[in-house]
Amino acid sequence: MRRFLWPTVALALIILYPLVFTTPFQQRLGALILLYAIAASAWNIVGGYAGQVSVGHVVFFGCGAYASMAAYSHFALPPMVGVPAGIAASVAIAAVIGVPTLRLSGHYFSMATIAVAELARLIVTNTEFLGAAVGLSGPTVPRTVFDLSFISALPYYYLFLTVLLITLGITWWMTNSRIGFYLRAIKDSERAARSLGAPASRVKLYAYMLSAGLTSVAGALYSMMFGFVDPESGLGILISVKMLIMAALGGAGLLFGPLVGAAILVPLEEISNNVLGGKGAGLTFVVYGAIIVIIARFQPGGILALINRLWAKHKPAEAPAAQGAPHAP
């Protein structure tokens, strides 16, 4: 049972964090880390485990965000009522775009997903029902607790933590199921897996749909916290890229990789913005970009892969660390 020791300690620390760091900004920072960790973990299912690098995941994020805000704007319902609709829409979209695009190899799949996401952004920008360019707003003042519009970040923190644990639980369950077995085989060599009878296309599609549904929950939570979504903040390509780089930086294809990535990048982004952003000289992104470059240069497999490796070296008797992210096909 020793392998559960460190995750348990980590979880305890995560639960205690907002009680130790009590300023609103620190709590909000914690909540944001968890929120991005949800999105990046959802991305990890298809991008990390299935090795299909989606650069258009924001389309699912947007589904969740727009469904929640539309539930409020058009029907005066609590935004969370829109969550099932967002999940349904995401899974449906994933199925529709997954069938043709998942048979594309490597870069073509990535490009196709970028095109789908940009298409979604452009269409929403021209759709009156979804607020067009102006976007949709949530309740300005919370009516009931179900609006999930809080002043303090504390409720968000524990809400996001719960959703993150569920996401990670599903991911863990998936990797240990038959699907996970197939995915590992496909990632190593799709041709070999197919010839051995693995239903490669179907398994990748399932992973894609699962990932899409979870990503839309992240989008819904995001829109509730900020009370607003517009085409740029709900469907902008930068959000896709952020999910990807958080997973890659932490360690794609590893259960806790995206969480580690978010725990590094979100504070880095916030702190560099806090310290340097007000100067107006662009230094925030010089620092942020440089640190990403350095990590990619010296630790291409992600931070968690490094930690695992050091851990394995430190304790040679332990089971070998999980493998790094997939190689390009």
């Binding site: 662009g282 992104f285 970009g289 990403i292 990619a296």
Partner: peptide, 24 residues
Amino acid sequence: KGPMLAQILGTFGLALLLRYSVFW
């Protein structure tokens, strides 16, 4: 030498670095 994701990570970081060095 790393996974394809590392390329995206590295070149995305490079993009920000170049863009905002010029900005600066």
